[in-house]
Design a protein around this nucleic acid. Sequence first.
DNA 1: CTATTATTGTGTCATACTGACTCAATAACT
DNA 2: AGTTATTGAGTCAGTATGACACAATAATAG
Lengths: 256, 256
Amino acid sequence: MKLSSIEEFFSHAHQLYLPAVSIDNVIFGFHENQLKVLLLQLVNKSVWALPGGFVGKSEHIDEAAARILKERTGLNDIFLQQFYTFGQPERSNNKILVKALQMLNQEFDKDHWVLQRFVTVGYYALVEYANVNPHPDEVSLACAWHDLDKLPELLMDHAEIIKKALDEMRLKLSVQPIGYNLLPKEFTMKNLQSIYETILGRKLDRANFNRKMLSSGILDRKEKHYSGGAHKAPYLYSFNRKKYFKALSSGLGRGF
Amino acid sequence: MKLSSIEEFFSHAHQLYLPAVSIDNVIFGFHENQLKVLLLQLVNKSVWALPGGFVGKSEHIDEAAARILKERTGLNDIFLQQFYTFGQPERSNNKILVKALQMLNQEFDKDHWVLQRFVTVGYYALVEYANVNPHPDEVSLACAWHDLDKLPELLMDHAEIIKKALDEMRLKLSVQPIGYNLLPKEFTMKNLQSIYETILGRKLDRANFNRKMLSSGILDRKEKHYSGGAHKAPYLYSFNRKKYFKALSSGLGRGF
DNA sequence: CTATTATTGTGTCATACTGACTCAATAACT
DNA sequence: AGTTATTGAGTCAGTATGACACAATAATAG
């Protein structure tokens, strides 16, 4: 059943979705060497929220997260990582949410299904900024990237969820390779280093970064060189798909 | 409200607990250098299950996990680590569970609240074997420790949950200290090494283990020596509470 | 066409950590 | 008093890491 209107969602949600369980996706993207996060603007205007959703009654929570990611960004086959589940009792049914829902539906019931307490499962994803065409869902005003250090006011505990996602991603960075969804097919070592520096929030030594990445074996060096910039032309690299995904599961070296 | 009977539980559970969300605790304990896991025997006899439970409508999921741990083991103030959330759609309402519930309650309804689909949040704990006095709850026949390599038939996806808990615990071992709940106040380096070897499932070099643990700074060496065994008397150590818990949050070295 | 300049690829070196091994000290037992 | 197994400490080669050096080079300026 396709929900084509807000009214239909409000009247049928309890039949289609699991109660008490929700998903929140923290979708990171890059732009101008800054880490961005995708947020939706509530109808109250001043408050933003993570792109989240509910779990179909016969749907795997991982599938629900992927579906929600696709609904918001149009992206498929992205590595979505479950990172934590948030279960404070007071995290739902707050004033801002109630206000937003009332603005969407005049006949909104204060005991409505969506205002019950939800435990939310957090997932994060890293996507290539250029590949994403953010479009808001039916219940939001806008969908836009925000700098991590200039976040707007956020709904409920969403600031905490973003912080935890970032912490977990930094931890995983030492074990898992990163960048597959963030870079074009061919890229320079400097591009890759920028991503690591942005995620980690600190500068890395260029020479040591080179050595480490090359020894990990997940990169293939091309014969071509990058041209266009001034100064010496760097090599171009691509990810070795096979080794990259092997490293995703079995782990890399000891990290940074 | 205290549920004093099975009938009360079946008739009031839906009023007291969140729907669709459950907790499963993987409680590891030591005995004779073997890692054990605490399991409950269903009334069907041949099948065992993790000590799990439900989340009170106004209860934090972490509190629910701690309450369930206490109900099963009598233990307080144990470091409980959330490690993963399991959300396959087919994980609930299986034949074995239905049978068990029917045996407990003749008038059991096939559409009962407890047979809805549940997403379960996994926690693990490490406890001192001797401190635990396992006692089964009202709906189980027995509560007992099982060797990890000789597990009985398990309910639903509980085997997968245990495997994931062990994997995550091994990963965390390189970042977090371990053993606080597993050893008496004073212990020998060999005691501690046994724990690491048991959890990791492989032997470690004695001299190198010594060096690493001492350099981490979380141990205080006592003047006393252990006496009782044959041969040279080893030093006794205790955990430095302050440094231990600091290391729990900020991390140790690079691990094993 | 040549010099300048910033960037890149590679090399070096001191330091720290790891795994494997050695060896003297020692406490209980014979 | 000698035997024996275990402990605490030390050595050493191999490896990874952080900091730095330097020549090669592609675009630009003159």
